[in-house]
Amino acid sequence: MSTKSTRVAAMEAIQEAARSDERIVIISPDAVAAARATAFREEFPDRVIEVGIAEQDAVDIAAGLATTGMKPIVVSYAGFLTMRACEMIRTFVAYPGLNVKLIGLNGGMLGGEREGVTHQFYEDVGILRSMPGVKILCPADAQQAKLAAKAMLEEEGPVYLRLGSGREPEVFEDGTPFAFGKVREVKKYGNDVAVFAAGFIMDRALKALEQLHQEGVEGTLVDVSTIKPIDCEGITEVLKACDCAVAVEDHNIYGGLSSAICEVACQFHPCKILRLGLKDVYPRSGVAAELLDAYGLSVQNIVDAAKEAMKK
């Protein structure tokens, strides 16, 4: 499966939007290169605010800019943004509901795989999900990341866009739509089991669905690209049809996609749901594919979990 950078794709959308919206400005805590925004900076040199390695400052400056009507986008690594500048996001962006966009790079193990724990971030979604007023987008590949970035800019108020390392597997064909706030059925063989996934783990979830199909288990794969607000109605509909599910995410199992799915399920359609993600441990450095396999996110792990979920 070929790869394409979600970072490049998202920035293409932002650069295109900036041509017709002069309010768009990028705030960089030394992250222009990381965010693949050098072309943006060449085209709009006055619309990149470079603050040096200072994420807290970047978020507060974005808040100040937004009060004047600008549309700032802060780009940084997911953890430096959501952890180091956590309070700035919460108090000075989310609380007043300012129109600040946040792009977090290296989301999950697939992000900073070889860098190790300091540069892998599996808490970002959980942190932001607990903040009132922040919307969270977790696109599955570059094609979706571009549409997600466009949707983010069209949405008023704080939005977080989770991106990866720049080597994300291509899952979706051109023309695949992106719907803000809605789940989307990626593939449906039947209602034996539902597989919910978000982000760059989608290719593995898709392979697992195919393998299940080969083995006679007919499942449905659902892309939950908007983790907040969560699509209660859409998820409930799938749960009612399948009555068991697996949730797959490149994030700690606490606070992210699987938590959100379980919150919906326990209120609207309680059923057996197995959760595949990082099991509350800090992983190691390694090649992405090996790392995901080592920490329980292989295709076989998903297949096994789906079969387990089907057992009553």
Partner: peptide
């Protein structure tokens, strides 16, 4: 602006002045 969490005013002011 919101304020009260200490230390943030100069950064927010920097954003306003830039804006």
């Amino acid at each position: 602006t919101v304020s009260g969490s200490l230390g943030n005013g100069v950064a927010i002011g920097t954003g306003m002045a830039l804006g």
